[in-house]
Amino acid sequence: MHNILDTLYNLPIDAFMGQLMLGLINGAFYAMLSLGLALIFGMLNIVNFVHGAQYMLGAMMAWILLQTLGINYWASLLLAPLIVGAFGLLLERFVLRRVYALDPAYGLLLTFGIALLLEGSFRQKLGSSGQPYAIPAELRGGWDLGFMYMPTYRAWVLVASITICFAVWYVFERTRLGSYLRAATEKPQLVRAFGIDVSKMINLTYGLGVALAAVAGVLAAPIYQVSPLMGSNIIIVVFAVVVIGGLGSMSGAIVSGFLVGFVEGLTKVFYPAASSTVVFVLMACVLLVKPAGLFGRRA
């Protein structure tokens, strides 16, 4: 205890806020990814293990578009999710659809295999080292807030991810389309009887979830290095986030994403050695107290 207080008193406030900021940035990515995962799980009843690889694909696509065609960040932010989302549509239509009738474990194994395929292919082509991706000129620099220095790009990521998460949440929870989608997950036969093409909706939901991962990837490209391994490093943490939040709820996925990032940031300040394990410890604690997750309904 003495140690922690000691650290707290001697800690420069800007370093402290800086770590918290970093934590929140990580949290923004956790939130976007776990939201996509929850979305896909809700509709397809599949744990999309390839989600991390699709996030990597988003970043990779931005990098490739810049390298080969000179397409800038802003265009990539639109193009990369479209390309990766289209890939998701095809993947769902021709591959994933075959395992819906089976035990969900097979969906996990299948998407795990696809993730290995994608990651291995990019590693074979580009090696496992990271490639830098420059911050776009409009978002360089930062503001001095008095108690901390706020890089513009980080602020942009935070605002963008909160906006995106809210938009997705709004579409699914508050619009007519969203209510169709939610109805289709609960009673697909009945919704089909109303003349709604359920399999097309499932297809589009998967595409949207994948595009969401790709957006996260493009946003992440200037912060982290673009590497074939960036997806597999983050996906397991996102799984823990999903267990903490409970897969059933979309708002739960968003909130617990930011929460986990925040806790990680705090741990980095006080006990850096535990910063990569704290997520999993948090998960174990949540499992002990609320097995269904913080926001989950009874499974």
């Binding site: 394990t277 998960m283 499992l287």
Partner: peptide
């Protein structure tokens, strides 16, 4: 004991996350 509190796909994610915790423990 922890993991069998949840079933199906959650069980898989929990075991994976706990194993990753051991990985980071062994790293540090």
């Amino acid at each position: 004991w922890l993991a069998i509190r949840r079933q199906g796909i959650y069980f898989s994610m929990i075991t994976l996350a706990l194993a990753q915790m051991v990985f980071f423990f062994c790293l540090q």
